[in-house]
Write a protein that binds this DNA or RNA. Structure first.
Length: 709
DNA sequence: AAACGGTGCAACCGCTTCACC
DNA sequence: GGGTGAAGCGGTTGCACCGTT
C-alpha cells in the first residue's frame, strides 16, 4: 500500500470517512511531497486514494501549489516584485494567476493576499502605491476606477498606463456629485477622475470586487475606521480622486447605511459610487425600523433593492433631498453609461464582455435606488417645520425621506453642515469653480433663462439636475423650449415655473394632505409639463435611424427622483422617444398583452428592433449568443438576500427592448417617424402609500424597469 | 495582564473552464 | 452536442499573531 511506502499517515481516526480540513501538518506535507515526487503533479483526486491523505484533491493541489512545490519563493516581496505586482495589477486587474505566472516562485494566493493587504492598506491610508515620480492624479483616478480593486481587463486590453498611480484611497474616497444623471460618463461627467473612463471599469470595479469592503462581519469592522476616515475626510493626503469635491461633499453627503440583510455588498458599492460614506458597522443598521416606520410593513424585506437608510433627524431641506436625487441620478448615469459602453462594444468581438456588462447593469439596476424607498412613502413630520425653507410651497408639510436612523454617525456629519449649506449647493459650488472633464461648469445662477450653453443632451440632463436651483435650470442651446408649459392644464412659462407650480397645484396639495394616511392609497399622477419640438436639434439626432434609436443616443431615460422641496420624488424622464416610453410602458404593455419585457429579453427577435445600430440591438444579440453559464459574472438575484419573491429588475437588454418596443409601437400606431418630435418630459410621480409604493413591481421609480415575475 | 482590534496568511468555497467520453 | 469530472481561478473566511489600550 502506498500509504505504507510514504510513511505513517497521521491519525485521523476521529475523521474517518470525512476529509480533513484546516491547516496542514508537516506529516501531511511529507506525504503529499512524497506522493507528488513519485507520481508527479496532477490527478489530485487520486492522492487521497493512494497516499492515505484525508484531504480532497483540491486541497492537495492548493497545498502543493502554494507551499510545497519546489522553487517557491518564501518571504517578503522584494521591491522589484512589488513594482511588478502593481504594474501587473494595473494591466491585468485581479488576475492573480496570470500575475503569478510572471513572478517566478510566487503564487497567485500570495500575490492576492499581498494586494489585498499591503496595497489596499496604503491606498486606504492615502499613501501612494506608486513612487512619487510616477504619480499622476488623473491617472490615479483612472487607475482606481479601472483596477482599483477590481479585475477590469476589458478584453484583456487595458489601456491603463501601468505607471499611473492610484495615489490615494480606494473609491471609498469617491465623492460623486451625481449631477450627471442620465448622461454618458464620458462627456458630461462632473468628475474629473471619471471623465473618459470606460464605464464598465467603473461599474465593474464598483460592483463586483473589492474584498476590502465587501465582506460582512469582521472584515467590515476591519474596514470601518479606514472607510469612515477616508470617506469623511475626503481626499486624505490631498490627492483624492475628486479633490474638488471630496472635502465638502463628503461632509455634506448624507451618511447612510446599508441594510445587511439585503444586498449589503451592493449597498456598500453603490453607497460609494454615490459618494456617500459607507458605514459598515453592521450594528448600526436600522433598516427594519425604517420599514416599520414607513408604514409599509414588510416592504423593507421585500424590496429587491438595496435599501439605504438616511438619518431621520436630518433636517429635511430641499437641498438634502437634492443630494438624494443627485445621488440617484448618479446611479442612473452609471446605468446609462453602462448601457452606452455595452452598446459600443463590437458585437463580434466581445460578447462575453457585453454580457458581463449586462449582468452588471442588472446589479446596478437592482440596487439602484439609493434610498429607503419604503421610507419615502412614509409621511413624517420632519424638522422642516422648525427650519422651514420660506420658499417651500408646502409650508413645512413634508414627508420624510429618511428612515429611522438615529445613529450619531448619521447625524453628526450632516447636522454640522446641512442647515448651513446644502450638499448639492456645496457640490454645485465646487463644481462651478471647476473645469470638469473639459466642460466648464458655470454658475447656474448666472443663467437667467433656462437656456445654457451645455452642448448636448447629456449635459442637459446634467444641468437639469441642479435641483437646488430649479429657477436656473439651463438646457442645451438647441433646445427650443415651448412658450408655455402646461401643468394640469395650467400654463407655465418656464420649466422651473412648471415645476414650482407642481407644488402649488391644488391636486398635488390636496393629495399631500392625505399622503401617507393609512388606507389612503393614491394613484400615481403624472403631470406632463408639456412637450416641445426640438427644432434646433442637431441633425444627427433629428434624423433618427432605422434602428429607432440614433446610435449615439442610447436609452436616454433618466430615472431621477427629484425631490424638490423634499415633498415629492420626481421622476425626470428624459427621452428621445415618445412619451410613454418611459412612462407606464410596462404596465401598458402588460395590459395590452404585449410580451412581458422579461420574455422579450429572451425571445424578442433581433429584427424587431430594426437592422440599424439602434441602441441595444447588437447588445441583445450579444447577450443572447453568450453561452449559458459561462463567464464569471452571474446574474444577481436581487431577491436572494431578502428571500422574498418580488419583481425582478429587467436586464439591460430587456429594458432596451422595452423601450424599443414601445418606440416601435409608437411609430406604428401613430405613423410618426422617430424622432421628429422627441420630447422632454418631466414626470411628477406621486408616491402612493401602502402597498402601491415604489417597492411595488411595476410602480417602482425604476419603475418601468421593474416587472413582476 | 487582559481585552481588543488589526494584520497576514493559509485554506476553503463556489464557480468557471477545459478535456474527455 | 451534452454530460461529467478534473483543474483552475478568484473571492472569502478562519485563525494565529501582534500591537495598542
Amino acid at each position: 500500500m502506498e500509504t505504507m511506502e510514504l510513511g505513517s499517515a497521521p491519525d485521523f481516526s476521529e475523521d474517518v470517512g470525512a476529509l480533513k480540513k484546516g491547516p496542514w501538518t508537516s506529516a501531511e506535507d511529507a506525504i503529499l511531497v512524497a506522493y507528488v515526487t513519485k507520481h508527479g503533479e496532477g490527478n489530485w483526486n487520486s492522492v487521497q486514494k493512494h497516499s492515505g491523505l484525508y484531504r480532497c484533491g483540491k486541497s492537495c493541489r492548493l497545498r502543493w501549489a502554494n507551499h510545497l512545490r519546489p522553487n517557491l519563493k518564501k518571504g517578503a516581496f522584494t521591491p522589484e516584485e512589488e513594482r511588478m505586482i502593481i504594474e501587473l495589477h494595473a494591466k491585468l486587474g485581479n488576475k492573480w494567476a496570470r500575475m503569478a505566472a510572471q513572478l517566478p516562485g510566487r503564487t497567485d494566493n500570495e500575490i492576492k493576499n499581498y494586494w489585498n493587504t499591503r496595497i489596499k492598506r496604503r491606498m486606504r491610508a492615502g499613501l501612494p502605491v506608486y513612487p512619487p515620480e510616477m504619480q499622476n492624479p488623473a491617472a490615479n483616478s483612472q487607475y482606481l476606477f479601472e483596477h482599483g480593486e477590481m479585475s477590469m481587463s476589458s478584453g484583456g486590453e487595458s489601456e491603463c498606463d501601468p505607471g499611473s498611480s492610484p495615489s490615494t484611497g480606494d473609491f471609498q474616497n469617491l465623492s460623486v456629485s451625481g449631477m450627471h444623471g442620465g448622461c454618458r460618463m464620458k462627456s458630461c461627467s462632473s468628475l474629473t477622475g471619471m471623465s473618459d473612463l470606460p464605464l464598465s471599469s467603473v461599474v465593474t470595479q464598483t460592483l463586483s470586487a473589492g474584498q476590502s469592503i465587501s465582506s460582512p462581519g469582521r472584515r467590515m469592522k476591519r474596514m470601518h475606521r479606514d472607510t469612515q476616515c477616508s470617506s469623511m475626510s475626503g481626499a486624505s493626503g490631498g490627492g483624492g480622486l475628486f479633490p474638488q469635491l471630496s472635502d465638502e461633499s463628503s461632509k455634506t453627503m448624507p451618511y447612510f447605511k446599508a441594510r445587511r440583510s439585503c444586498g449589503t455588498r451592493n449597498s456598500m458599492r453603490l453607497a460609494q459610487i454615490a459618494g456617500f460614506p459607507y458605514d459598515p458597522d453592521p450594528e448600526g443598521l436600522h433598516f427594519e425600523e425604517s420599514a416599520d416606520s414607513a408604514g409599509t410593513p414588510g416592504s423593507a424585506m421585500t424590496s429587491p433593492y438595496t435599501a439605504f437608510s438616511l438619518p431621520q433627524n436630518h433636517h429635511l431641506l430641499s437641498s438634502e433631498a437634492d443630494s438624494f436625487g443627485s445621488n440617484n441620478s448618479n446611479n442612473s448615469s452609471f446605468l446609462q453609461a453602462l448601457l452606452q459602453e455595452a452598446q459600443n462594444l463590437d458585437p463580434g468581438r466581445d460578447q462575453i464582455r457585453s454580457a458581463e456588462l449586462s449582468d452588471q447593469l442588472l446589479v446596478l439596476t437592482s440596487a439602484n435606488p439609493p434610498m429607503d424607498v419604503s421610507a419615502l412613502m412614509s409621511p413624517r413630520k420632519s424638522r422642516w417645520g422648525e427650519d422651514s425653507d420660506p420658499t417651500t410651497p408646502l409650508e413645512g408639510r413634508t414627508y420624510s425621506m429618511f428612515s429611522e436612523d438615529t445613529s450619531p454617525n448619521c447625524t453628526s456629519n450632516w447636522d454640522e453642515t446641512s442647515t448651513l449649506q446644502s450638499p448639492l449647493t456645496t457640490v454645485s459650488s465646487n463644481l462651478q469653480a471647476a473645469h470638469v472633464g473639459g466642460l466648464k461648469i458655470e454658475n447656474s445662477a448666472q443663467h437667467d433663462m433656462p437656456c445654457g450653453n451645455y452642448g448636448d443632451e447629456e449635459n442637459l440632463i446634467s444641468s437639469l439636475l441642479d435641483f437646488a436651483r430649479p429657477d436656473a435650470t439651463p438646457v442645451v442651446e438647441w433646445y427650443n423650449p415651448p412658450d408655455v408649459y402646461t401643468l394640469g392644464g395650467q400654463p407655465c412659462h418656464s420649466l422651473p415655473e412648471a415645476i414650482e407650480a407642481a407644488f402649488h397645484h391644488q391636486d398635488v396639495v390636496a393629495e399631500l394632505e392625505h399622503l401617507g394616511a393609512a388606507g389612503h392609497p393614491v394613484a400615481n399622477h403624472v403631470w406632463e409639463l408639456g412637450s416641445c419640438p426640438w427644432n434646433n436639434m442637431p441633425a444627427e439626432h433629428a434624423e433618427g435611424s432605422p434602428g429607432l434609436l440614433p446610435d449615439d443616443v442610447d436609452v436616454v431615460a433618466s430615472t431621477v427622483p427629484l425631490p424638490l422641496h423634499a415633498s415629492f420624488p420626481l421622476i425626470l424622464a428624459f427621452t428621445f422617444l415618445d412619451p410613454v416610453v418611459y412612462g407606464p410602458s410596462l404596465a401598458q404593455s402588460a395590459a395590452s398583452g404585449q410580451p412581458h419585457a422579461n420574455e422579450m429579453r429572451s425571445s424578442q427577435p433581433a429584427a424587431e428592433s430594426g437592422p440599424g445600430p439602434g441602441a441595444g440591438s447588437g447588445l441583445r444579440a450579444q447577450a443572447q449568443t453568450r453561452p449559458e453559464g459561462t463567464g464569471r459574472s452571474r446574474e444577481p438575484d436581487a431577491d436572494q438576500s431578502s428571500g422574498v419573491a418580488i419583481g425582478r429588475p429587467l436586464s439591460k437588454n430587456a429594458a432596451i427592448s422595452t423601450l424599443e418596443q414601445s418606440a416601435l409601437k409608437q411609430v406604428r400606431e401613430k405613423g410618426s417617424q422617430y424622432p421628429t418630435q422627441p420630447r422632454f418630459y418631466l414626470l411628477l410621480k406621486r408616491l402612493a402609500s401602502g402597498s402601491g409604493g415604489f417597492n411595488s413591481p411595476g410602480r417602482s421609480k425604476l419603475g418601468e424597469l421593474i416587472v413582476p415575475d
